[in-house]
Amino acid sequence: MNIFLDLLQVIAWICIFSGGILVIIGALGSLRFPDFWSRLHAASVTDSGGVILLLLGMGIHSGFNLITFKLLLIGVFLFITGPTSSHAVANAAWVSGIKPLRNKHKKPGIDK
């Protein structure tokens, strides 16, 4: 039983650690990518992977109690609002006419 709990703690640490790395990668991507549209995708790495792993790690670390429930609530909320605000940014940019950067191979534009 004790070993099992220790193992759970180790899993929690790994989750938190990799979640932190994902958040950094998301931020790095939003700094490195060449144009607005690709930066949107980098931000969604933070929004999905980073949030899931960090909250999961904290939830496992705290055991099962009211704290876990609050973490779950934060997670559900970020899951609903994160994509919605990304979509809102993308939609506003699209309406205002910011087009994706031209690639070497393909022309940007709508494709059926």
Binding site: L28, P34, V45, G49, P100, P108, I110, D111, K112
Partner: peptide, 28 residues
Amino acid sequence: LAEIAKSNWTVIKIVLSPNMDIKQKMYE
């Protein structure tokens, strides 16, 4: 959740690769 894990991996590879192999496209 499984899908998110897979696609996260794809995007992470692109972010960390030196030449950033981006093929952007709008589709329906």
